[in-house]
């Protein structure tokens, strides 16, 4: 007889911050390890902070020389990958008492903006300001392939679940789908409504984050739209989803009832189908297929990243004020 796992039920009206840990510098990103033992956060003081979830014990991981912008775990939870504005990709054995970098890869010229780990753990992909996407061997850190030809800076990327294919989102609102060995993208999605350009100088917005639904049927891009004054930050958060198989674009997810200036720095799709997005100080929840936000849960400080704990009950958020918070969002 197989054991039945208790289904998770979201309880949004009861959503609240249940854990609050502090660091002394702004946090830019966070990830929970797949075993649920640790949560890590990247900071503007060049460090990665590791908290042991059960005890709250904090360990500082030192190795980068600029803002730590992106994090990812191997599927077994043993290896943490970190990418920073120093252009480097570092790998850490996260279970050690005081982790040190076990791989130090000068991955990009200029900022490294995004990284992703394949679901089999064999490959790590990165992208950066040099307009390159690079795929690395997780085993030895060697470059497997380089994906050139991006006209604009690739901002984020994600492995297609169960494969070595990649989706790459750029600062001009394009998503490119790269098959494992093709020399150019096999298809592209345009999300021009979440991209703005300031004069002939600077892009504003674009594809800030990409996420697949747990069943792999939906690809969601998040970012900003309705930018009325980019220099002052007047814009609205938004997520745009596609049917992964057909490429059909679905209605935008936005906050209509309550207009809030913000960029949706990350969206994740809960196993219940609810889309969870973080922007400004808010955690927003959207029911599947419904454009307007179903619930907003406020936090004390601006949120720049989030990640779901494997228990699917706790959402960890990385904040401007240096706090890492966990919000209990359901019952299991």
């Amino acid at each position: 007889m197989t054991s039945m796992k208790t289904p998770v039920t979201l309880d949004l009206s009861a959503a609240k911050v249940v854990t609050d840990w502090t660091h002394t510098a702004n946090l830019l990103c966070c990830r929970v390890d797949p075993t649920g033992k640790y949560v890590v956060a990247g900071a503007i003081d060049y460090t990665v902070q590791r908290w042991e979830i059960a005890t709250g014990k904090k360990t500082v991981l030192v190795g980068h020389q600029n803002w730590v912008r992106t994090l990812g775990f191997s599927p077994d939870g043993k290896t943490l990958y970190s990418g920073a504005y120093d252009g480097r990709l570092l790998a850490w054995e996260i279970g050690l008492e005081t982790p040190k970098p076990v791989k130090d890869i000068p991955a990009h010229q200029g900022w490294l903006r995004g990284l992703a780990v394949s679901s089999d753990g064999q490959r790590v992909a990165t992208c950066g300001n040099d307009k390159l996407v690079k795929v690395w061997s997780a085993a030895d850190g060697k470059l497997i392939r380089e994906l050139p030809g991006h006209a604009h800076v690739p901002y984020c990327l994600h492995f297609v679940p169960g494969s070595h294919e990649l989706v790459v989102g750029d600062t001009f609102g394009n998503i490119h789908h790269w098959k494992a060995d093709d020399a150019k993208p096999s298809r592209s999605f345009e999300v021009k409504e979440i991209f703005y350009h300031i004069g002939d100088l600077a892009p504003f917005g674009g594809i800030i984050n990409l996420a697949f639904s747990p069943d792999g049927r939906t690809l969601t891009a998040s970012g900003l739209h309705k930018a009325s004054n980019a220099l002052a930050g007047s814009r609205r958060p938004v997520a745009v989803s596609f049917d992964w198989k057909t490429g059909e674009k679905r209605p935008k997810h936005e906050s209509m009832k309550k207009e809030i200036d913000g960029t949706m720095w990350r969206a994740v799709i809960h196993p219940t189908g609810t889309l969870i997005g973080v922007f400004e100080k808010q955690v927003g929840f959207w029911n599947a297929g419904v454009p307007d936000v179903a619930h907003l849960a406020a936090t004390p400080s601006d949120i720049y990243d989030c990640d779901l704990h494997p228990n699917q009950l706790d959402l960890y958020t990385a904040h401007y004020d240096g706090h890492l918070r966990a919000m209990r969002i359901g019952r299991g």
Partner: peptide, 20 residues
Amino acid sequence: PGGWDFHHNNFEFHLHYVSD
């Protein structure tokens, strides 16, 4: 040249504007 009043997104904008 155009406006350099980056109350928001200062580093991304300077990356482009100063390079320009």
